[in-house]
Amino acid sequence: MKGLKRMKKSFLFISCDEAQHICDKAQYGEASSWERFKLNIRLAYCHITKSYSVKNTKLTESLEKADVKCLKAEERKKIENQFKEELAKQQQNN
């Protein structure tokens, strides 16, 4: 009976690290409903998880608001190759 109770507890109550991991996944829409449920339980009583979650969500909102962009690997490679050619030419001339 005691063993079953402990199993149920570990089934529902997750560690702070696991909660933060689920919180990260949730920012990318990759946390399952069950994981989000367990995260919500932890959020109800753990202020460390709560403060991490607030900060994490704020970061996601900022990233969405700023709509930051970056180069894809192949685009960067193209620019790099062009530039390397010119750099080599310049170094040859000097």
């Binding site: 930051v68 962009k69 970056c70 180069l71 960067r76 620019i79 790099e80 530039f83 750099l87």
Partner: peptide
């Protein structure tokens, strides 16, 4: 200039786009 692409291309791209 050897490190320009690695260090600044994403920042410049975001600025430009």
């Amino acid at each position: 200039p050897n490190n320009w692409v690695k260090l600044y291309s994403d920042y410049l791209f975001n600025y430009t786009i």
